[in-house]
Simulated assay, not measured.
Amino acid sequence: MIPFNKPYLTGKETHYIYDAVNSGKISGNGKYTQKCQAFFEEQYHFKKVLLTTSCTDALEMAAILANIKEGDEVIVPSFTFVSTAIAFVRQGAKIVFADSYANNPNIDADKIEDLITSRTKAIVPVHYAGVACDMDKIMELAEKYNLLVIEDAAQAIDSFYINKLGEKRALGSIGHFAAFSFHETKNIVSGEGGMLAINDERFISRAEIIWEKGTNRAEFFRGEVNKYGWVDTGSSFLPSEIIAAFLWAQIENLSMIQERRVSLWNYYYDGLSKLNIQKFALPEVPDYATKNGHMFYLTCVNGEMRDKLISSLKDNGFHAVFHYLSLHSSEYYAHKHDAGRILPNSDNFTECLVRLPLFYELNFEDLDKIFDCLALTFEDVKG
């Protein structure tokens, strides 16, 4: 069986883990943590980066930094992973779910303004599949209504947005905050892991305190204060040096990993385009977005076609999966707020989207076999 995902190992992970352990400094914020953070700040022009134990933790830090409180409203796409919403639910916020575009799983930026009220505090765009949301429109709304923007960039490492001026900016560098994931399903991995990017200098000092359990310990270790203590809220968000050491081996090979993944994405797109099958749609990448090869998905014409395709691929030795269940239709949300709202595009992606295998060691011959399987599957459902 060809798996849906397989983490790529560079060969240096255990070497750097050994080095971290041998150094005697295996708790957080050591040499490898600082190397990783410095790389991301320099490479993508984030003002400040803090590694976290997960993308969920990064989002929770952002919710604290944004001072989200009981009764505040946060606009979140419905077609996303639960962490995007739950980080703000934990602070007492009311989640206002937004629909996707009809032909793109990302939040429909043209529908956000109608959702803004006097209680709205933040917008959380999710760059699905590493493809940018329309950040010019979102940032204009944020400025107009004095809102914070928290980019959920879990899938968006090394992907970019091209703004109205033609400037290319890394996803995660545009909003006030951004959260990234290094889960084993992502482009570069550390098993579990994530990071918070802070792009507004107003929040940098407090971010370190929240990261360090509500203490100013980071300032103490830099010699900026002569003692440290409890000065704010926070939690233990920072990962161990073992996780950071693993991640550093991945970072060293980021360009190579990205080149391979994007080449697989392009091969998928070109090969499936040539099949000229009308029973599914290929992913759309808007002119303002780049792709980072995080995933390749199809949107079938209905749920029956999607299920038939997944079953057929499985019978032929390929593991394909559906993706998110619309959060506004979830069991948890069913009795909350405006749970009766209808978001047809989000529900359509829930029903019809299928993710195909994509990982570094996948080869083009495997993709050719997937193409053959799709051609035979949809030949059986003509008409």
Rank of each mutant, 00 (worst) to 15 (best):
K227G: 14
Y228M: 09
Y228D: 07
G229K: 10
W230E: 13
V231A: 12
V231N: 01
V231W: 02
T233K: 07
T233G: 14
G234P: 15
S235A: 15
S236T: 02
F237G: 09
F237I: 00
L238R: 14
L238E: 10
S240L: 04
I242M: 05
I243G: 07
A244N: 05
A244S: 09
A244P: 04
L247A: 05
W248D: 05
W248R: 01
A249V: 00
A249P: 15
Q250M: 08
Q250P: 01
I251G: 11
I251L: 14
I251W: 07
E252V: 00
E252I: 04
M256W: 01
M256H: 09
I257Y: 02
E259S: 11
E259H: 06
R260V: 01
R260T: 06
R261K: 06
V262W: 02
V262L: 14
S263V: 03
L264V: 06
W265I: 07
W265R: 01
W265L: 09
N266M: 10
Y267H: 11
Y268T: 03
Y268Q: 12
Y269H: 14
Y269G: 04
L272N: 05
L275R: 12
N276L: 09
N276Y: 08
K279P: 02
K279V: 08
K279F: 09
F280M: 11
A281P: 00
L282N: 06
L282M: 10
L282I: 06
L282A: 14
P283V: 08
P283K: 07
P283E: 15
E284R: 14
E284Y: 15
V285Y: 08
V285N: 09
V285I: 15
V285W: 06
